[in-house]
Simulated assay, not measured.
Amino acid sequence: MKAFFSKPITWLLTFFNVGIYNLSDGIDSLILKLNFIGLNDHANTIITLSQSIEYQQGIIIMLDTLKCLFMLISLVFFFMTNQELICKSFKWLYHKFKHFYYYLKQLFKPKS
């Protein structure tokens, strides 16, 4: 959970359904165990690789953010350009549901 506190922008992006790929605390404990055993070179290599992964994850987060932004912009333009057709479709759908409701109402009307 250290990654959430060190990068304040990542928790904000989770509200917009942007993928967050952060490292687990398992790497920290693995590095401590390797240092305790005496495999300092391996621990330093893992630290270097995890820093590289964090940088690449930052790039992935920014690309996901741009993808989400472009998707929202394209949806706005879609609704703006097809507003009349969308309104007609909703009215048509409303009338079909209305007719279906009246049909069901007549079908299940108690016979007295």
Score class of each variant (00 low, 15 high):
residue 69 L to R: 08
residue 78 F to R: 02
residue 81 T to F: 11
residue 93 L to Q: 13
residue 51 Q to D: 06
residue 90 F to S: 14
residue 83 Q to R: 05
residue 65 T to W: 07
residue 78 F to S: 02
residue 94 Y to V: 04
residue 67 K to I: 08
residue 55 Y to G: 08
residue 76 V to P: 00
residue 52 S to C: 00
residue 85 L to G: 10
residue 90 F to I: 13
residue 65 T to C: 06
residue 68 C to S: 15
residue 54 E to G: 00
residue 87 C to D: 10
residue 96 K to C: 10
residue 97 F to D: 01
residue 90 F to M: 14
residue 75 L to C: 10
residue 72 L to W: 07
residue 48 T to M: 02
residue 65 T to Y: 06
residue 94 Y to W: 11
residue 46 I to W: 01
residue 78 F to I: 02
residue 90 F to L: 14
residue 71 M to T: 12
residue 89 S to I: 04
residue 57 Q to A: 06
residue 55 Y to V: 15
residue 54 E to F: 00
residue 50 S to N: 04
residue 93 L to A: 14
residue 88 K to F: 12
residue 72 L to I: 01
residue 88 K to T: 15
residue 89 S to D: 08
residue 80 M to W: 08
residue 69 L to P: 05
residue 60 I to F: 12
residue 46 I to R: 01
residue 92 W to F: 09
residue 57 Q to H: 08
residue 66 L to K: 15
residue 74 S to K: 02
residue 89 S to M: 06
residue 82 N to Q: 02
residue 54 E to T: 03
residue 77 F to C: 06
residue 54 E to P: 00
residue 74 S to V: 01
residue 94 Y to D: 14
residue 73 I to H: 03
residue 54 E to D: 03
residue 61 I to C: 11
residue 64 D to I: 03
residue 54 E to W: 00
residue 63 L to T: 09
residue 60 I to Y: 14
residue 87 C to K: 13
residue 89 S to P: 04
residue 94 Y to G: 10
residue 80 M to D: 12
residue 61 I to T: 14
residue 88 K to W: 08
residue 64 D to G: 14
residue 57 Q to S: 15
residue 89 S to C: 07
residue 90 F to W: 07
residue 77 F to K: 08
residue 74 S to D: 08
residue 88 K to R: 14
residue 48 T to R: 01
residue 89 S to H: 11
residue 97 F to H: 00
residue 45 T to K: 09
residue 87 C to S: 12
residue 65 T to R: 01
residue 93 L to S: 14
residue 90 F to G: 11
residue 62 M to N: 11
residue 72 L to A: 07
residue 68 C to V: 13
residue 75 L to D: 12
residue 88 K to H: 15
residue 69 L to F: 15
residue 85 L to D: 12
residue 79 F to L: 07
residue 49 L to S: 04
residue 88 K to E: 15
residue 53 I to R: 05
residue 71 M to W: 07
residue 86 I to T: 04
residue 48 T to V: 03
residue 65 T to E: 03
residue 65 T to G: 12
residue 95 H to G: 04
residue 90 F to C: 10
residue 82 N to H: 04
residue 66 L to W: 09
residue 55 Y to C: 11
residue 51 Q to V: 00
residue 92 W to H: 09
residue 78 F to Q: 00
residue 59 I to Q: 05
residue 82 N to A: 01
residue 65 T to F: 14
residue 50 S to V: 05
residue 49 L to M: 12
residue 71 M to F: 09
residue 71 M to H: 11
residue 89 S to V: 05
residue 52 S to G: 06
residue 54 E to Y: 00
residue 68 C to I: 08
residue 83 Q to W: 05
residue 55 Y to K: 14
residue 45 T to V: 09
residue 68 C to W: 08
residue 85 L to C: 07
residue 86 I to V: 05
residue 45 T to N: 10
residue 63 L to F: 11
residue 91 K to P: 05
residue 68 C to N: 14
residue 93 L to N: 15
residue 69 L to Y: 13
residue 88 K to V: 11
residue 82 N to Y: 05
residue 51 Q to P: 02
residue 84 E to M: 02
residue 72 L to T: 01
residue 94 Y to K: 08
